[in-house]
Each structure stands twice: as structure tokens, then as C-alpha cells.
Design a protein around this nucleic acid. Structure first.
Lengths: 233, 233
DNA sequence: TTACCCAAACTGTGATCACAGATCACTAGC
DNA sequence: GCTAGTGATCTGTGATCACAGTTTGGGTAA
């Protein structure tokens, strides 16, 4: 083989800036609920914690602000937005509509390989959430993996990105609640809806898949809203 | 009235940073098609053009990159992403689904005031696009106004934000094409679909409104794809 | 004890500088 | 004539400094 062809096989190595790393670190903090609504975030403190200057953190925060996951108060303070019950309900309804849409497309378009991946993800979540002593953080991650295994098979990359943004926005509220009240896990939440979704996707039944996903989202949202932990608007 | 109560009525004035202004300026450049796919963007040149230092531009660009409206090449160059025909088709399909969804909700939930606003927007676009010598830039703006008058009435703020992002992404391709081939305007494109959407919203017919919007988006996308100006994947 | 006030420490924003890497025009060598 | 190399100039990235505005804590006066 000529060296020219050999070089062509080299994978293009991705460039990771410090800002990218900072973004992921902060997004993870938010998604896992360790940063709760109302919490303030200092650029300098975050930078010190990450061992970099404020610049990369600044860029990461500005992206998160653009995503609506963080906000700058009129006093210039950066904080996690405090979602009202009304806001949260609107977000949940939007998610039901859009994620239902994606699930329906997946049911209709999925390949066998994609179906197998979804099956594996469903089994993994079931094993964790159904166990005697479920690990909360792990269950949250597996739940996310399952949902995105479904959305990844919808065949529409932009739709998938939209959903990822919505999850980032809902993350702090949902996971803070789950962290505070892990008993929801023990009740085997979501297991039934996931099973319904899997059956629908296997049967290529779009509407049923959409209904299962929407019900999953609605029930989780109702549960959190019933707690009354959100400020009402 | 006590001065305390009078002061409470003052609207909270929004803080506008230079980065916000730069973001809007760049977004406008992209939305209007003056920045075409493949074009490169220099931080320093942009900063000089805007009369500020690179910092605000940097922040604006990082937001646009997060939105996928700009991208940083592996060589670190910032440019407008070159969308393949496949990418564009996926984006159009996503828009059809999501904007159709919003239109359906609007048809079912709209108030009389919102309906009136939609009527006005439809009439304004019809007057411009149907005139003998339509102003291209103005028609594009009025088309956007009409679409967002419809989406604004759907009652779901997050859904509206999602759609705004999708438009930002599609803007460069669509408006570059329209700028290059304004004859589409003269053919009275979109007028029929807009009329159908208005009738459906008046009749509170969700599915019909969704179908009209989806057809509007599909026809525009097909028109652009038929031009073959997009690189195929 | 309570209300007020002022100063020190902090906040994000913007400008500027430093640096490594990419680009491009140009020249030397085949 | 064409390719390879070379240096000036450009690129984005990151660090640092300056500044105005905000928060906070301690001390003073009532």
C-alpha cells in the first residue's frame, strides 16, 4: 500500500478546546442535578475549580445561557433559572410532542440493528431500576441512554439535537427531584412505559410509540409537579 | 398612588451587552443570506467592522457555533457550514414535523386576538409578494413574521424557541437561494399555502393547519433542492 | 437591639497581549 | 515549468488586566 493511501486512512483527530471541556463539565453538573435551580455560578470560582482562566468558562457559560440552561440576572449574576410550574408544564408538553414525534418516526423507520440497540438499552435500565437497591445516578444515565437510543434511530439529526437541548433544560429540575426523592425509582417508574414503547417500535406502530413516550414524560412531570417544589406562576 | 407602587410598575429594563448586539448583527447577516454557506468569518475583521474588540464577537460567534449556524473547521477557521442536500432535506423534514405541530396547536388554542394578528400578517405578506414589483428582502421578512405570528399563538414558549433555532439554521440556504433567484417570489410562492393555513386556523382545524405549513416548507425545500445548488451527499 | 452606612471584596464585561498553528505569496532547486 | 520549502501575516485560543457595578460584612449611631 502506498503511503498516500495509508495516510488517507488516518482518522481526523478532533480539536478540543478548554471551552469545550468546560462546557461539558458544567452541562454535566446541571444534568445531574448537582446545580439546582436558583443556584448562582461564579466565573472565577468555576475557573479555579477547573484549573483554567476565566476565558474558557466564560465561553462555556455563554453557550449555556444561549441554550437557556443558565441565565444572567439583571444584576449580572449567573444562575440556574428558576422554573415556574407553568414553565415546567410547557416544557414537558413540548417534550411530549417532539419526543413523541421522534419515537413515532423511529417505530416506522428503525433498522434491525437500531431495534437491537434499543432492546439492550431497555434491558439495562430495567435491570438497574428494577433491582432491589437501584443506584440513582446510574439509573438516570441509563434512562437517558434508552431515550436517546430511540431518538437516534429516528433518522433526523436536527430533531435529535433539538431533543438534546430540551433535556438539558429539563435536567436540573428532574434530577434534582429524583436526587431528593429517590423512592420514585423504587416504584419502578417508567418501566411500564418503556416496555410499551419497545413493543410499539418492534411492531412498527408509530402512534403507539408516540403515546408511550408522551405518557412516560407526562407521568414524570406530573409526579414532580405534585410535589409542589416548583414556584407556581 | 404611592410612589412605591408607581415604581413597581416600571418595566425592568433589559441589559444589553455588546456581545448581544454582535450576536444579532451576525444572526441578521446569516438570516438574510448575505453570509453564504462556505463563507469564512474572521473575528478581528468582524470586530473592526462592528467597532468593538474581539471579545464580544467571540462570545457571539461561540453562541452561533453552539446553535450550529456557524462552525469551526479543524483548521480553526470559522465559517458558515456547507449543508449537503441530505442535511438540508433532514432539516426541512424536521421543520415540517415541528412547525406543523405548532400550527396545529395554534389552530386549536388560538384566541381571537391572535387570529387577528395572523390575519394581518398574512395580508401584509400577500400584499408584498403579490405586488407587481415585490421587494425581496421585505417579502422574506414578512414571510417570517407570518410564520412566527402563527407559532407565537401555539401557547408553548419552548416550542417557539426550537423553531427559531431551526430557522436560523435554514436561513443562509433559503435566503441565499431567494437572493439568487427572486423569480420564485413572482410566481406567488407560498401564497396558496398561507391562505390554506389561515383558513384552517380560523376553523380550528389542527390537522389541516399542520398540513398547510408542512406543504409550504416542503415546496420551498423541493424548489431549492431542484436547483441543485447544494452539494449532494 | 435595630437601622443605617461605608468600605472591602466580589461580580460580569470588555480590551489587550501572547502564543501556537494555519495560510499564502514567493523563491530556490530540481 | 513545477514542486518543495520558507518566512511574513493571518487565524482562533487562552491569560491577564481594567473597570463599573453589586454584594456583603462590620461597625457606628440612634
Amino acid at each position: 500500500m502506498s503511503s498516500r493511501l495509508a495516510l488517507a486512512e488516518l482518522p481526523q483527530l478532533e480539536r478540543r478546546t478548554l471551552a469545550d471541556t468546560a462546557y461539558e463539565a458544567l452541562a454535566d453538573l446541571l444534568a445531574s442535578g448537582r446545580l439546582a435551580p436558583g443556584d448562582r455560578l461564579s466565573l472565577r470560582q468555576s475557573a479555579a475549580a477547573l484549573g483554567v482562566s476565566v476565558m474558557p468558562v466564560r465561553e462555556a457559560v455563554s453557550r449555556l445561557v444561549a441554550d437557556g440552561v443558565l441565565e444572567v440576572a439583571p444584576t449580572r449574576a449567573i444562575r440556574v433559572p428558576i422554573m415556574t410550574a407553568r414553565d415546567f408544564r410547557a416544557l414537558a408538553e413540548t417534550r411530549m410532542a417532539i419526543e413523541g414525534l421522534a419515537a413515532a418516526r423511529t417505530a416506522e423507520h428503525r433498522s434491525e440493528a437500531e431495534l437491537a440497540a434499543i432492546r439492550r438499552a431497555e434491558a439495562a435500565f430495567r435491570a438497574e431500576a428494577g433491582s432491589a437497591e437501584p443506584d440513582c445516578a446510574r439509573a438516570v444515565r441509563l434512562n437517558r441512554d434508552l431515550h436517546f437510543a430511540i431518538y437516534a434511530a429516528c433518522g433526523l439529526a436536527p430533531l435529535q439535537e433539538v431533543i438534546a437541548r430540551l433535556w438539558l433544560k429539563a435536567g436540573p429540575v428532574i434530577n434534582l427531584d429524583l436526587r431528593a426523592h429517590p423512592e420514585r425509582l423504587l416504584q419502578g417508574f417508567a418501566l411500564q412505559r418503556h416496555a410499551e414503547a419497545l413493543v410499539a417500535i418492534e411492531a412498527r406502530d408509530g402512534p403507539a410509540a408516540a403515546a408511550a413516550l408522551a405518557a412516560d414524560i407526562r407521568e414524570a412531570a406530573d409526579f414532580i409537579l405534585s410535589r409542589g417544589g416548583l414556584r407556581d406562576a
